[in-house]
């Protein structure tokens, strides 16, 4: 029989750097989970993504056991990395702060496909390009689709 779920906690934590302080501590501790066990596992599993902000969904069960799924960094984080800037624009439609190529948009879209509500790479690319636009980042050239 499937174990009964107590709660699902959605956090974003830096790879290799989970520690028992807020928000990990209070979010898991109150549910009776052994926080130290989560930190050790999360850090061991993310050694190749040290320091990157990673979304993690932790399912806590009624018996205080848990499991978790680590996702790739959010599209906006990947956009900043691709464009090599640290922040977007305060006036995204007037003041552009960077340019992203459609190849870069495609790479991010393909990476984030499983997490986006998109059925095709094209629709995922439109979502990523939309996020970039809201950050004041232009896409370079014509879209490779209609």
């Amino acid at each position: 029989m499937a174990k009964e779920v107590s709660k699902v906690v959605k956090l974003q934590v830096r790879g290799g750097a989970a520690n028992p302080s807020p928000p990990v501590g209070p979010a898991l501790g109150a549910a009776g989970v052994n926080i130290m066990e989560f930190c050790k596992q999360f850090n061991a599993r993310t050694q190749d993504k040290q320091g990157k902000v990673l979304p993690v969904a932790i399912t806590v069960y009624k018996d205080k056991s848990f499991d978790f799924v680590i996702k790739t960094p959010p599209a906006a984080v990947q956009i900043l990395e691709a464009v090599k800037i640290k922040k977007g624009s305060g006036e995204p439609h007037v003041k552009k702060v960077g340019t992203i190529t459609w190849d870069q948009v495609r790479a991010i879209a393909e990476d984030k496909m499983p997490d986006l509500n998109a059925f095709t790479v094209e629709s995922a690319m439109k979502m990523v390009a939309g996020t970039a636009r809201s950050m004041g980042i232009k896409t370079k050239g014509d879209a490779p689709f209609n």
Binding site: L11, Q12, R14, P23, P74, K86, G88
Partner: peptide, 17 residues
């Protein structure tokens, strides 16, 4: 998503959505 990306670049450690 954008807020988290910018806060992360500014040095914030972790986030709860």
């Amino acid at each position: 998503e954008i807020l988290i990306a910018e806060l992360g670049a500014a040095g914030f450690e972790s986030f709860v959505e």
